[in-house]
Structure formats: structure tokens, C-alpha cells
Computed example of a mutant assay.
Amino acid sequence: MQTAGKTWVVTGAGSGLGQALVLELLRRGSRVAAVDRSREGLEETQTKAGGSAAGLSLHLLDITQRARVEALAEEVEQVHGQVDGLINNAGIIQAFKRLQDLDLEAGERVMGVNFYGTLYMIKAFLPRLLQRSEAHIVNVSSMGGFLPVPGQTIYGASKAAVKLLTEGLWAELQGTPVRVTLVLPGAMRTGIAQHSGVETPRSEGQAQVPLLEPEEAARTLLEAVEKNAFRVLLGKDARTMDLLYRLSPLYATRLIQRRMAHLLR
């Protein structure tokens, strides 16, 4: 589906990939409803949009609040007159701990934002999207959704749930006007740790993984959407590990375990 002239809802729009997606959509001639729980982040996105901000609306919202999400769909339609696309980008990581050391409340928070927040948004907007002549849902999972990362096990489980939710939704919506795209990013410069309220350990004496810039990721993602792609991998690391995991899940898992184990001592 072409992005120009369409109205898109983007979650996590106050920073990182979400902010980059908003700005790129506006640049391409779209209207955007930017959703985030941070007022400061939304205002920053608006400032960066500059002259393109005429097609932008800001919606302060915690996507784990089901009733508020349900009201958002009507709110966006009142502002823009229609909704053509939904990009579920908002997400958080967990504290960098083994599962045995992570408290259940922290795990529930990660699942609440990453999985249930995505589910609430889909349930709220899908009836409206089905009424359009063409529409699109984009769900941002993670490389950690197909490759286990020690210290991020609950995060990975939440993103794996988003992955399968997206694939199932794609199958169920065949024969309808709604297309679905699954996004699997690797390491990206997003500040997700800061926005999740956690600290990430530093890897001493080892080469750092090159970080994909969110602006480049946004362009690649939207190009995939315009081709109605089923699945898009963002970053060289995501593409490489996807191939390795397909060839040998055990080898890929051991490789990541060896690289990450020292961070959990």
C-alpha cells in the first residue's frame, strides 16, 4: 500500500524508530497520529516535523490502558476523518537479568507493553481498517523474537508472541483489504533502555555491534510496506542471525550465549 495520502497511527512516536517513522511518513505526504506516553517526546517529534506538522496529531497515551486505547480509534477518526494504517512500534526491554533473578512484576510490565499493548491497538483499529478499500498493519517485533538472548528472556518471549500474532493475523486477513507486515529489527540506536527505565551492561574489551540508525530503518520499513512485504529484517545483524538460526538453531543460540554470558556474571 502506498503511504502518501494515507492516515497512519504510530505508537512509540516520541523517540527512536517511532519518531523516525512519523517524520518519514510526513515527508512522504501522509497524515500521522503520533501516540506515545511521553508528552516531551511527542512535542519533540512535533518540533522536528517543522513545516510538515500540519498533518500531525499528538495523542498522549499508555497503550497498556485498554479502555483508553479503545477510545483512541474514535479520537483519531475525528481528527483525520479516516485511518488507513497502524504501526505498532512501542516497546520496552527488561532489566538485564537472568529469568531467575527477574521479578514477576517486571516481566508482566514487559508483556503488558510489548504484547498486550500491540493486541489492544489491533483490536481497536482493525474494524475501521477493514472498512477501507486498502489498509495496512505493521507490527514491530525484534531479532530477539526468533533468537534467544540471555538476560532478555521475557523481552524475547514478548516479541516472539508479537511475531506469531502478526503471522497469524496475516493468514486470517487474506481476502480482506488489510495487509500485514512483520518487522524484525536488530541492534538500533533508539534509546530503548533509557525509555524502559533500565540500565544495560557495557561489554568491555569486545567489538561493539554497529547500530542501525532509526532514519535508515524507517525508510527500509516503509519501502517494505509499500511492497506489501510479509516480513522485513532491519540491520545486517538481524539478517545474518536469521540465516544462522534457520541453518542451525542450536549453533546460533550457542553463539549468542557465548557472546552474552560474561554480561550476566
Rank of each mutant, 00 (worst) to 15 (best):
W8L: 11
V9M: 08
S15R: 12
G16C: 08
Q19D: 07
R27H: 09
G29C: 13
G29A: 07
R31G: 02
A33S: 10
A33G: 14
A34Q: 08
R37Y: 05
S38W: 03
E40D: 09
E40I: 02
E40H: 03
L42A: 05
L42S: 01
Q46P: 01
K48Y: 00
A49E: 08
G50K: 12
L61G: 01
L61W: 01
D62K: 13
T64M: 12
Q65I: 13
Q65Y: 04
A73S: 14
E75G: 04
V76G: 00
V76H: 00
H80C: 14
Q82C: 06
Q82Y: 03
L86C: 07
I87V: 12
I87R: 01
N88M: 08
N89C: 04
A90G: 09
I93W: 04
Q94L: 09
K97S: 10
R98G: 12
Q100C: 03
D101F: 05
E105L: 08
A106V: 13
R109D: 09
R109I: 11
M111H: 06
M111K: 05
F115A: 10
Y116N: 11
G117W: 00
I122T: 15
K123G: 13
K123V: 13
L130P: 12
Q131S: 09
S133E: 13
A135Y: 01
V138N: 06
V140Y: 01
